[in-house]
Design a protein around this nucleic acid. Structure first.
Lengths: 108, 108
DNA sequence: GGGTTAAATAACCTGTGGGTTAAGTAAGCG
DNA sequence: CGCTTACTTAACCCACAGGTTATTTAACCC
């Protein structure tokens, strides 16, 4: 699976997006991250593994804790990818497109 | 499934992203869209249904053709969502964060 | 009407995603 | 050493995603 697909797949789950949001406030342990959800520890571990494989988090080791930290690098790729479609949602670009089309027609 | 999750899930597949890229060049029929891939028609139909449910394409009806058209609106949501993480990948923001932290510490 | 083309639907297979519980690993602590 | 805490791994379940082939629907064309 390519990098971008892995990133999108990781982001498709609300729990994982919530984990990323929490990590914007700073590093956290697995226990802390699991607090807001009523799903089991192993389920959280799996989510973290997906995020780690997608390169969205890095993990440390401090005694019996495995602190997680956000790595937003892949999100830059997402932003860049989405930006390429800006002209298709942006109204001013749409008007520009219409203008260009019109010009092209009058040329012929 | 919420809108954002549906969008990310739709974007997680490379075939579907390729279809969106093709549709930036203008509307296309199902046949035309399936041309570049060596997967069956029904498989393409399923991909299109996913894209349609995510609101990324709209479909018309012209005789026996069902032309597909790009609707990038959900991609704006993606861009906005990703932009919220800009300060975590942008180096200058990182330096700003460091500066703010430093300031906060000297205040105490 | 009969044949052809475009596309969707149905039925099926297989892999994987997200969840569970139970057991294992690893570190702190009395 | 033995107990507790933090976390992972293993084994399992079920739903769904992505693919297939075969069939159906719908429209055009002769």
């Amino acid at each position: 699976m390519d990098q971008l697909s892995a990133t999108f797949a990781a982001l498709a789950d609300p729990t994982r997006r919530a984990i990323l949001a929490r990590l914007t406030e700073g590093p956290a342990t697995v226990k802390e991250l699991s607090e807001p959800f009523d799903i089991s520890g192993p389920a959280i571990s799996k989510h973290l593994r997906v995020l780690e494989k997608a390169g969205l988090i890095t993990r440390g080791r401090e005694a019996q804790w495995r602190p997680c930290q956000l790595d937003a690098t892949p999100l830059k790729e997402v932003a860049v990818w989405a930006e390429n479609y800006r002209r298709f949602w942006d109204a001013s670009y749409t008007r520009l497109d219409a203008l260009l089309t019109e010009l092209k027609e009058t040329e012929q």
